[in-house]
Design a protein around this nucleic acid. Structure first.
Lengths: 150, 150
DNA sequence: TATTATTGTGGGTAGATGTGGGGAGAAATC
DNA sequence: GATTTCTCCCCACATCTACCCACAATAATA
């Protein structure tokens, strides 16, 4: 069983737009990720997602099964791919964040890093707060549906 | 069958915010938890919950199967995991408690540790007392409902 | 009760981690 | 080809973590 990410911590971009990935998340990567490679993409929510490269590769593998003959599939694959960047940590465990992605998530300096099972979410703290507050609370129906699974 | 936790005992945080996990609870962990790893989360009541890591991992494994394309799933996973922190006991059987979690449960120095089946509850003693007193007593209807199960 | 083992608590310290910044070489631009 | 920009290595150092040892408190045994 692969150990899942968990927890939240607050970090800061330095002057060079580098983000230090907490050691505990780096350490949870499997052997294949020995070089600490992540794929960063734009999230469906206004945040960035950092997948361990191996996790992203598995997802990409699934996308290959989408038919190329459907226009929407092509569009989705295109959007997904162009927003994903493969980035390696430097020897200090930091990732140099592209400005384009930082802008998308409105990240200036402060970053909330959330370990969420098999990926990390990177949030501008204020955005995270607003987003969580504006959420429709998970209702009974949702948990009823979940109960079918668990 | 896995042995269940039971009992209550009073402990103290030391100067370094370390909480000593009673040996009886550590011993009840299975072989896989040889390193005595817990996942601490915010409870639904104003206390902290400590799961043996293996228990939490089993649940996390299920959550991984929820589709990322559903907004509610993402919200649920985010909320669940950001409040969970994986912590390992040191060689003396103590856990270094993050201030963020201590604040949530209003824990200063004294901690009541309650062993409850497959998890531990960590309470600030005064909070526990108040909470129990303010509770609506369990009524006959509740036990009638229980009777359907047992 | 005395003796031994186990457990809980305190605190020093080496090593791990996070953060900042210089600068060599690569890449892009003119 | 020259200049500028970018990337990533390196070193520095402050902070944090977790190991270790010491010993007190408690439980277990003779």
């Amino acid at each position: 069983m692969i150990t899942s990410f968990a927890g939240e911590s607050k970090h800061f971009l330095d002057e060079k737009s580098r983000l230090s990935i907490p050691a505990k998340y780096r350490r949870w990567l499997t052997e294949e990720d020995a070089e600490y490679t992540f794929v960063i993409t734009k999230g469906a929510d206004p945040c960035l997602i950092a997948y361990p490269a191996i996790e992203w590769d598995m997802f990409a593998e699934k996308l290959r099964n989408l038919s190329q003959f459907k226009k929407k599939n092509r569009a989705f694959i295109r959007t997904w791919s162009r927003n994903s960047i493969r980035l390696k940590c430097d020897k200090q465990g930091r990732i140099l964040m592209p400005q384009r992605l930082l802008d998308f998530a409105n990240i200036k300096k402060e970053v909330a890093i959330i370990g969420a099972l098999n990926y990390l979410e990177l949030w501008e703290p204020e955005m995270l707060k607003e987003h969580q507050e504006s959420q429709i609370p998970l209702d009974d129906d949702y948990f009823e549906d979940l109960a079918d699974i668990f």
